[in-house]
Simulated assay, not measured.
Amino acid sequence: MTKSFMDEIGPERAQELVAEAVRKAIEELHAAGLPAIQGDGNGRVYKLYPDGSKVYIEEE
């Protein structure tokens, strides 16, 4: 039986790859002047703008 990609690289490496892809995507959004959608530790969702400002979705 063939191992899945996840089995081959392991969960830790998979998490590293996902985290790096997300960092790059956020960098690209910010370079284009667009916000990234993120969440805080309390489950609230916000737009994070390139200047570091946050606008919570329910505040719009």
Rank of each mutant, 00 (worst) to 15 (best):
A32F: 08
Y46A: 01
L48K: 01
V45R: 12
P35I: 02
N42Q: 14
S4R: 10
A32H: 08
E8R: 15
G52Q: 04
E16I: 07
I9Y: 07
K24Y: 06
Y46V: 02
E58C: 05
P50G: 03
Q15K: 14
G39C: 10
E16K: 15
S4T: 15
P35R: 04
G41V: 07
R23W: 01
R13G: 02
M1P: 05
Q38L: 14
E12C: 05
G10E: 03
L34Y: 12
Q38F: 03
L34P: 05
A14C: 08
R23E: 09
Y49N: 10
Q38R: 13
D7E: 15
Q15E: 14
E59Y: 02
S53Q: 11
A31L: 09
V18L: 11
H30Y: 03
D7I: 01
Q15W: 06
E20M: 09
G39K: 11
N42H: 15
I37H: 06
P11D: 13
A31Q: 14
D40P: 08
I9T: 07
P50D: 01
F5Y: 15
R13I: 12
Y46G: 01
A25W: 05
K47V: 00
E20L: 10
D51P: 04
G39N: 12
Q15C: 08
Q15M: 13
E60C: 03
R44Q: 10
E20G: 04
E59H: 05
A21Q: 11
E8L: 11
L17F: 12
E59I: 00
Y46R: 03
T2M: 09
P50L: 03
K24P: 00
Y56N: 08
L17R: 13
S4E: 08
L48W: 00
D7K: 14
Q15H: 12
A32I: 02
A36S: 11
A19Y: 07
E58D: 15
V55F: 00
V45K: 11
Y56P: 10
A14D: 07
E8S: 15
E59F: 03
I37K: 10
M1E: 05
K54G: 00
A14I: 03
Q15R: 13
Q15N: 14
I37Q: 08
T2I: 11
F5E: 09
A31G: 13
G43D: 09
G33N: 06
G33I: 04
D40A: 07
L34R: 15
E27K: 10
N42L: 13
S53N: 10
G52L: 05
Y46C: 02
F5Q: 10
G43P: 04
I26F: 02
A21G: 11
P35D: 06
V45Y: 09
G33H: 05
K3R: 13
A21S: 15
V22G: 02
D40S: 09
S53V: 08
H30L: 04
Q38G: 06
H30N: 10
